[in-house]
Amino acid sequence: MAARRDTDRTADDGSTRERLVDAAVAVLAEEGPAEMKVRRISDRAGSSTITVYHHFGNVGGLLDAVVVRGYATLTGTLEDAAASNDDPGVQLFAMALGARGFAQRNPHLYDLMFGLSPRGTYRASAPLVPQQYFREAYAVLVRSCHRLVTAGRVDIDDPEQIAAQLWSLVHGFVSLEAAGHFADHSDPVASVLAPMAVAQLVGIGDDRARATRGALDAYATWTATAVE
């Protein structure tokens, strides 16, 4: 044990910190939030338990770092969706598909990020810190909503208001799908998410044909990428 601690002391701090976050992400993905324990994570990282306390204060601090990692990944996913097409309607539906895909690949992480699962017996060490990173992901959505507004496609002139409605719509769909409520749908995106998103855009003033075409274009690109 002493030898391992000596190794920890001589390792680069950034490298050790990232290794612990990697280990925590892996334990969360494979075993769920109940196993997010200092001993379990430090063993996975090949470190001592004291290293967790040194870098994060406690396991709550480490969980905050996991949440930050999750939001960074989600932000990248949304940015890729925004870059996939010049049409803001296509961008927004591509973001919905990206967020859904992220949640499906990382169900425990998604739940932890949005407070849908407990952190075991641990409390967040700084509840407002993850909110900052949520805002970075959310800002990608707001920018595409701003493009929708400046293009004159909707009646609402506040992109933040549009983004809040769309985020709520997608988050609700993702959460219900994860809970198995759409298990009887052969394609929940086609039968639930797409029509709901189109109806939302039409409800704030977009043309139905254009909104539908944007959803179909994004869905076709997503399907082709999934097949590849």
Rank of each mutant, 00 (worst) to 15 (best):
D8I: 08
R9V: 09
A11H: 09
D12S: 08
T16Q: 13
R19H: 11
D22T: 06
A26W: 14
V27Q: 02
E31Y: 09
K37E: 06
K37T: 15
R39A: 11
R39F: 10
R40F: 10
I50L: 14
T51I: 12
G57H: 03
G57F: 05
V59K: 00
G60L: 01
G61N: 04
G61D: 01
L62A: 05
L63E: 05
L63W: 07
R69D: 13
Y71S: 04
T73I: 10
T73C: 12
T73M: 12
A81F: 07
A82W: 00
D87S: 06
P88A: 05
G98Q: 03
A99W: 10
G101L: 13
R105D: 09
H108Y: 11
L109A: 08
L109S: 08
Y110C: 11
M113D: 07
P118K: 09
T121G: 11
Y122H: 14
A126I: 15
A126T: 11
P127I: 02
L128W: 13
P130G: 02
V142C: 04
R143S: 08
S144C: 10
C145L: 06
L148N: 01
A151I: 13
P159K: 02
E160K: 13
E160D: 13
Q161R: 14
I162S: 02
Q165D: 09
L166S: 04
S168F: 08
V170C: 04
G172I: 04
V174C: 01
A178L: 00
H181F: 14
H185M: 05
S191W: 02
L193N: 03
A194F: 04
I204N: 00
D206P: 08
R210F: 12
A215Y: 00
Y219W: 15
T221A: 07
V227H: 15
E228I: 14
